[in-house]
Amino acid sequence: MKTQPKARTHLGIKTFLFGVLVSCATPYAVAETPAKQDLQPVSAFADIKNEVTRSQSIFVEMGKVIQHPRCVNCHPKGDSPLQGMLMQPHQPPVMRGPGGTGMPGMQCKTCHLSENVDVVAQAADIKSIPGDPAWHLAPTSMAWEGKSLSDICAQIKDKKRNGGKTLQELKHHMSKDTLVGWGWEPGEGRIPAPGSQEAFGQLYVAWVASGAHCPK
């Protein structure tokens, strides 16, 4: 019941980074009821003549994914993940530790397994425990929580803050990485990120091809 007004109100200004599109969510008390959002295909931006504007618009569309709690929850600015659509502090409390995999005795894998696990006949708002073989927190350099989309965009392009990757090298991560892909398959009782990983990957490719311009 700690308050974090910023996290609650700034869904629209969070950042992306090379990384892991995840929510380490054992969701909080609030049932996830909002409808799943759509993601517009690349073709929807074809009419934008100005390449810079088109590129920026594509990134804004990608922002629906990037700033989704499923993704931001494990790109926190602090040392602990967030959880649920309200992006509240993770319960039980867990620290990022070396490599973002937790601390001795309390690692990500203490609770998060190689895949989502359905919970049977327990809390109505916890239908599953999310999982992926690579479950971990993004490093602090890649924190998105509390950042504007413009800042996140710059962060993604900055090799110092994206894991030393070129934009081409990031393509696999965006479109194929299973931990990123978890965002669209988050398990029972959790709202997936908008669209699909494939559609998101296509937007990424189109954004890079259009010059990778960042929104203002």
Binding site: P92, P93, V94, G105, M106, C111
Partner: peptide
Amino acid sequence: KANSNPTDQDIDNAMAG
């Protein structure tokens, strides 16, 4: 096993769950 001389903070982190 991982940390033979933990601090209070290490203990709190490990035992938080």
